[in-house]
């Protein structure tokens, strides 16, 4: 099967009929930039626990993350676009995660993969951060313990949708979050306590005595 000319899509058109051989593109700048960004996200896998194994399964042959322009794992945060936090984040790891996020250049996004990263999950105890959104801003939460590769792929597609809706003129998207100088925290302490409060039945399960 030989190579055939690809049909032109709505984004770029090649004007060969006029014989000049020049290509030209007419589009909104936002659309073009976002299309480029969304289709070539470089993930930084911050894999800590079980979710990292499912992340590896997603990257391996059967689910093939490369289909979404993400086959280039960027293990250095300085060349990465998306932080995929896969797994639980204990308090000891919190400064590390925070620092990796700070090292990533703008524009950057974050996917919180799995229940533990998103909310502490089943580890409602002294050691685990109850949701990484108390440390860094999160764009997409992928539920599951661990999420199936399909779930992660869906989260990635959602992130791509989000990226495609961004406006370059909206400077607020690229704001870096600075810690509160007094407490050293990124969101108010009351908000952290509220986010970390267990929901529903879990209060009674663990506080019912022995």
């Amino acid at each position: 099967m030989g190579l055939t000319a690809r049909p032109s899509d709505n984004l770029a058109r090649t004007d060969t009929a006029s014989g000049s051989g020049e290509s030209w593109v007419a589009t909104r700048l936002d659309l073009l930039v976002n299309w480029g960004r969304a289709g070539s996200l470089w993930p930084m896998p911050f894999g800590t626990a079980c979710c990292a194994i499912e992340f590896m399964a997603t990257a391996a042959s059967r689910f093939d993350l490369a289909r979404f322009g993400m086959e280039r794992m960027s293990f250095s945060p300085r060349q990465a676009d998306v932080l995929i936090c896969a797994g639980r984040v204990p308090f000891k790891l919190a400064p590390v995660l925070r620092r990796i996020w700070q090292q990533m250049p703008q524009p950057k996004w974050c996917i919180s993969m799995g229940a533990c990263a998103s909310s502490g999950g089943m580890f409602d105890n002294y050691a685990v951060v109850q949701g990484i959104d108390t440390i860094i801003p999160v764009d997409v939460y992928v539920p599951g313990c661990p999420p199936r590769p399909e779930g992660l792929l869906y989260g990635i597609l959602m992130l791509q949708e989000k990226v495609k809706r961004e406006r370059m003129s909206d400077a607020s998207l690229r704001n870096e979050m600075d810690p509160d100088p007094e407490s050293g925290l990124y969101i108010p302490p009351q908000a952290i306590d509220e986010l970390s409060e267990p929901f529903g039945n879990s209060v009674h399960q663990t506080r019912s005595g022995l």
């Binding site: 919190a94 925070r98 620092r99 409602d124 050691a127 951060v129 009351q190 306590d193 986010l195």
Partner: peptide, 22 residues
């Protein structure tokens, strides 16, 4: 030692971020 630690979550997080064991 209580299951969820002695301090509030915010205080735990503050101490952890300040410790920076790395």
């Amino acid at each position: 030692f209580p299951l969820r630690g002695r301090f509030s979550r915010a205080e735990q997080l503050r101490q952890a971020l300040a410790a920076n064991p790395e």
